[in-house]
Design a protein around this nucleic acid. Structure first.
Length: 219
DNA sequence: ACCCAGGGTCATA
DNA sequence: TATGACCATGGG
């Protein structure tokens, strides 16, 4: 199976990634919202601001003023939108009863609940499910579409749920803990790989996936 | 001076 | 269903 071979190749080349960058489940959730269409280096600055203000906390974010929060989030871009989304998420998070209550939900129910929050789409929800709640869901992002369509393993314009199902059934057996570990590493490896390679040159012979790619186009 | 980055929502046809 | 506009900063 091609999907497994790509994983083995990436893992052999980069090793374990120990993702998500973030110390607590809530930091991971906040990071997932802030990194929407945004470079992670910018998100780090915003999270550093929240930490410096002792505000990396759902209750405190929920009751901060929009202007204040937007100012702290400024480096992450879209700061007005993200202040709104993060605050809305925190309000929901508190209303639900926090981490403990949410952890009691099964994966399907939790995913459905996350998607109902304004500003949480499929990828952000799956980031949170996989990296904050350790649930076996495969995250589909722009890197995944680009890489695997160029490897010839997918078309690239499939719907999100279609692709998620494709990866999960190709890689997972029965939604076990082992799947969570695999999906966790795999998504991290894809992102790492995307950063590592040259974006401007579509033909990259030095890439670690050069042998896997039939057309040798691996960016 | 461009181009892009670990998306999502909303308006239109 | 399927495009397009919009959000906005920082690094290459």
């Amino acid at each position: 199976m091609g999907f497994t071979r790509v994983y083995n190749t990436l893992y052999a080349h980069y090793g374990p990634q120990h993702w998500w960058p973030g110390d607590t489940p809530f930091e991971i959730m906040a990071g997932a919202v802030l990194t929407q269409n945004t470079a992670w280096t910018n998100v780090e600055k915003a999270i550093a601001n929240l930490k410096a203000q002792d505000h990396l906390d759902p209750a405190r974010i929920a009751r901060a003023s929009h202007e204040q929060l937007a100012q702290w989030l400024k480096p992450s871009g879209y700061f007005n939108i993200k202040a709104q989304r993060l605050q809305g998420f925190c309000a929901w998070y508190m209303a639900q009863g926090g981490l403990k209550t949410l952890s009691a939900l099964d994966t399907h129910a939790l995913r459905h609940a996350l998607l109902a929050v304004h500003g949480i789409g499929p990828e952000t929800a799956d980031d949170i499910l996989l990296y904050a709640f350790h649930r076996p869901v495969f995250v589909i992002d722009a890197y995944t579409r680009r890489l695997f369509s160029r490897l010839g393993l997918i078309k690239g314009d499939e719907g999100y749920e279609t692709l998620r199902h494709t990866f999960e059934t190709a890689l997972g057996n029965d939604s076990t803990k082992a799947d969570t570990r695999l999906f966790n590493e795999y998504h991290a490896l894809i992102v790492n790989h995307a950063k590592d390679i040259c974006r401007k040159q579509p033909l990259c012979m030095r890439c670690c996936l050069a042998d896997v790619c039939p057309s040798r186009i691996v960016t």
